[in-house]
Amino acid sequence: MMTVGPTLDGGLKLVPEEEQDWDVLLKIAGDAQGDLPQKLAGLMDEDSMWEDIVMPELATEFSSQRSYVSGVVEKARKAEEDEVIIRRDDAEQWYGALNQARLALEEKYGFGPRELRDADEISDEDMRSAYFRDEFYVTIQSLLMQYVLTD
């Protein structure tokens, strides 16, 4: 079981206790691979020229969030550190990467609103695994909102 809690300097600390916990953290960037910029551009009309102008900027921004999070986790793992710290200044990057992961998982598996979900109804192994990763990601997001992304 992974322990997550606020730090004294306004960040969040993730303490993986098992190999599986590190696996979940390392999967954030992979889960976040999706076509979010394209999907958002699809909401706009042709006059907006979204695909030419905005979409590339969003793609760069979202890619940067994924790279940052995977870099922090991989570095901590390689150094055999006991914890991963989400500093206050980096919380937006983490939130964004987690959000991308959840948006991509939702698009792939269609879990639907959280209040209507039932894990017992999911028999497919991949989907079940993705479901619990999504639950973990949203828990981190909620803690970021509660303790770190406060104005």
């Binding site: 959000n99 959840r102 909620s142």
Partner: peptide
């Protein structure tokens, strides 16, 4: 637009 992912607080 609503979506099932983004937290209401966010």
């Amino acid at each position: 637009l609503d979506d099932p992912v983004n937290l209401m607080e966010y």
